[in-house]
Simulated assay, not measured.
Amino acid sequence: MIVFGCIVLIAGCGSMGLWLAQRVRRRPEELRGFLVALTLLETEIVWGSTPLPEAFCVLKERTSPPWQDFFSALQLRLERGESAGKAWNEEISLQRSRFCLKEEDWRVIRDIGRGLGRSDSQEQQKQLQLVLRQLSMLKDQVGLWSEKQAKMWSYLGFLCGVAGVLILI
């Protein structure tokens, strides 16, 4: 019975560590997905002269979850008549927990909402390109950081389980 308890403790702590490591690894993937979506949005606004609700519909179809749900909700809000900036910020607040992004990522992403739909396509393009550069630099930094953090959480989970077993025995 004691052996079974030890195995459960190690497995439980280890799986918690693996879960945290998986969340850390998702951050660069989500940033990459957002960079692709932002590039598509820039193309739709500048070259396609697409209205924002239709542009968000295109993004919804071409992105993967969780960004797909984010842009779908934005499309619905804009079709109901909400302003783009307000819808953008409120959707970030509502869906933030579904992502593995950190506060510094959200600060940059939130900046997009300030000028979205308020100015002409050239000004929006400048703003989107600025955010693309910021996110690209952030993504490069996060890539190295996340691998180190993921390994640490994986090992730490199992080591905490072993330490718990040693303390209990």
Rank of each mutant, 00 (worst) to 15 (best):
R96V: 06
E103H: 10
R118T: 13
S119N: 09
L101Q: 03
E90N: 13
W88Y: 06
R96C: 08
S83H: 10
E90V: 08
L116A: 05
L94D: 08
C100G: 07
R110N: 10
S97D: 11
R96W: 06
I112H: 01
Q95H: 13
S83P: 02
V108T: 13
E103D: 15
L94H: 12
L94A: 15
S97A: 14
I109L: 12
V108M: 09
L116K: 02
S119Q: 13
E103S: 14
R118A: 09
G117H: 04
E104A: 10
D105V: 03
G117F: 05
R98V: 09
S93W: 06
D105N: 12
E90D: 14
E90M: 12
R114F: 09
R96E: 13
W106A: 04
R96F: 05
L116F: 05
A84F: 03
R114L: 11
G85I: 06
R114H: 09
K102L: 12
K102A: 12
N89H: 13
G113A: 04
K86A: 14
S121K: 15
R107N: 14
V108H: 04
C100A: 15
R107G: 11
S97H: 13
E90W: 08
R114M: 09
E103G: 04
S121M: 11
E104G: 04
K86D: 12
R118M: 12
I112R: 00
E91F: 03
L94I: 13
L116W: 01
C100E: 08
G113E: 00
S97N: 11
L101S: 04
L101M: 08
I112A: 05
S83I: 05
